[in-house]
Design a protein around this nucleic acid. Structure first.
Length: 507
RNA sequence: GGUCGAUUCGUCUAACGGUUAGGACGAGAGAUUCUCAAUCUCUAAAUAGGAGUUCGAUUCUCCUAUCGACUACCA
């Protein structure tokens, strides 16, 4: 009997979501959709210290921009609401108590200071302090205090936490969809805190297992940084008696910095000239980080690029729509090693998507940019201009410099181009060409161009020299799409005017 | 330090015991064009090292090296 696929993306609202987090969300989403399952957004705000206002709204907006739609979550609610752990705080203590009653957890009364002291002490001896089976019986815990003593201490307001009682010397056998079988001995693990006294909230470990269970999560797809906690999580499921419905796990490889060492961090984005965040983010301290959206990346390109960072369908296809990603995605094809982020390839993806984009859609980017330059035009004209140059653009902002000369006559002429082509003979021929062009009712690439080419050959002029001289007169520089396409676009009158103006200006 | 994980061109990756180790980005060269892009063609570029297992290892095992994650009353 197959369980319904239900996955969750469970970020902490401690800041902006970086692209590693977006990729985790994406893989969860792709997995859910490809199995006809549910994608749930749960906010894990159990750390009251690190909570950042605005972070949750950012996460929601980022997922929307990416086209990742949530089926249940903080925004739309659902059968397991609420989806914000701070609003679920009442349910966790009960489960912590259940673990204590079954002998799988205990109260510990150590103060933060005494733990610190023990850590320092161990460090000074060159050892690492671990709160485990070796030390827990020497410390103040409910394990050695009587039930009454424990009650009294809690009643009188002593600080306490609930810790998991990690079994001694037991091999935990685990399976990961991406990494395969993993074994670890519990003696290397410590008694993790499950419930914090500081803010009366569960830690990640407890809240995570309880909520995944309650929300009937079938697959946990998360970053590799969680792999070391996997045995704890397995043991927690066992302690609760939930092993039969325990989700399957898949730990994703990390995203690495483009240069140097280490995983991609929130700090290195703008240092290397590319964003690490999907959207622009202004931190509470005022620090601004750039975003893919604001830098001109199309969400489809961004998602396509991200999907292929650590996953590959095994074919040579590289351009995928979201639907195609859903159809092709499988966790088994996710690679095991960390992936270094490549900003150059990200640009290439964007250029591919600009090219695929509708002219009318791109015109929507162009029109306001032209307006800012004092040029007003129709959507049709803008779309036509875009169609001539869109394969040369990487970002929407490239559209303006690429089309501006189609709307405004050049006011200056590129020195190098002039030096190369603006010669007396060429200018004479240009004047003749202007007279020739004047004979046409209107200029079209389809008819005028072959006619002019024939005329140039008949008159034994140099095609390259004359065409580039014309190009300078029309555009001011020797660049751009076919010159007759541009002349057709600006029209016969404007073409002749620009030729005349160029001759005057460069006389 | 300990535990766990990873290791194919500069980068992302394919090849799940038998291939001239493939593709893409980037780089270089050429073709094309009225120019610049684009496009097309071509080139350089990799199995971390060492032992095994096997008729045969990129692929399986072990060791070494390197990188990474984790080692909080953070997630």
């Amino acid at each position: 009997m197959e369980r319904r696929v239900r996955v969750r993306f469970a970020p902490s609202p401690t800041g902006a979501l970086h692209i590693g987090g977006v990729r985790t969300a994406l893989y969860n989403y792709l997995f859910a959709r490809s199995h006809g399952g549910d994608f749930i957004l749960r906010i894990e705000d159990t750390d009251s210290q690190r909570f950042v206002p605005g972070a949750e709204a950012y996460i929601i907006e980022a997922l929307k921009w990416c086209g990742i739609k949530t089926d249940e979550g903080v925004e739309q609610g659902g059968p397991h609401a609420p989806y914000r752990q701070s609003e679920r705080k009442d349910i966790y203590l009960k489960y912590a108590q259940q673990l204590i009653d079954s002998g799988n957890a205990y109260y510990a009364f150590d103060s933060a200071e005494s733990l610190d002291a023990m850590r320092k002490d161990a460090e000074s001896k060159g050892q690492t302090f671990a709160y485990n089976y070796q030390v827990r019986n020497q410390l103040e815990t409910s394990l050695k205090l009587s039930a009454d003593e424990v009650k009294q201490r809690i009643a009188r307001g002593d600080q306490w936490v609930v810790r998991f009682k990690m079994p001694e010397n037991e091999n935990v056998e685990m399976d990961d969809i991406i990494r395969g079988h993993i074994t670890i001995n519990t003696s290397t693990l410590d008694d993790k805190v499950l419930y914090k006294s500081a803010d009366q909230l569960p830690t990640y470990h407890l809240a995570n297992i309880v909520d995944d269970h309650l929300m009937e999560i079938s697959h946990v797809i998360r970053g590799e940084e969680w792999l070391p906690s996997l045995p704890l999580h397995y043991l927690l499921y066992r302690a609760f008696g939930w092993t039969d419905t325990q989700p399957q796990f898949a730990h994703l490889p990390l995203l690495l910095k483009p240069q140097g060492q280490g995983k991609l961090s929130k700090r290195d984005g703008d240092k290397f000239g590319f964003p690490v965040f999907p959207l622009r983010w202004v931190a509470p301290d005022g620090e601004v980080s750039s975003g893919y959206r604001e830098d001109g990346y199309l969400p489809e390109a961004f998602i396509n690029m991200l999907a292929l960072l650590g996953w590959n369908p095994g074919t040579e296809q590289e351009i995928f729509s979201m639907d195609e990603l859903i159809a092709a995605f499988s966790l088994e094809k996710v690679s095991k090693a960390g992936a270094r982020f490549n900003p150059e390839k990200a640009k290439w993806f964007n250029a591919q998507y600009i090219r695929k984009c509708d002219d009318a859609k791109l015109a929507e980017y162009l029109i306001p940019m032209l307006a800012e330059k004092g040029v007003s035009t129709t959507p049709e004209r803008a779309a036509k201009a875009v169609s001539l140059i869109k394969e040369r653009a990487t970002f929407p902002k490239d559209l303006l410099p690429l089309t501006e000369y189609m709307f405004v006559a050049p006011s200056q002429y590129d020195e190098k181009s002039v030096a190369k082509f603006w010669k007396a003979e060429n200018v004479e021929n240009l004047k003749k060409l202007a007279a020739k062009l004047a004979e046409f009712d209107k200029i079209t690439a389809a008819e005028t161009e072959p006619a002019v080419h024939q005329w140039i050959m008949d008159n034994q002029m140099s095609m390259g020299q004359l065409m580039n001289t014309l190009r300078i007169a029309i555009l001011g520089i020797s660049q751009g799409p076919s010159i007759f396409d541009i002349c057709e676009f600006i029209g016969k009158d404007e073409t002749l005017k620009r030729i005349e103006k160029a001759i005057m200006a460069n006389a």
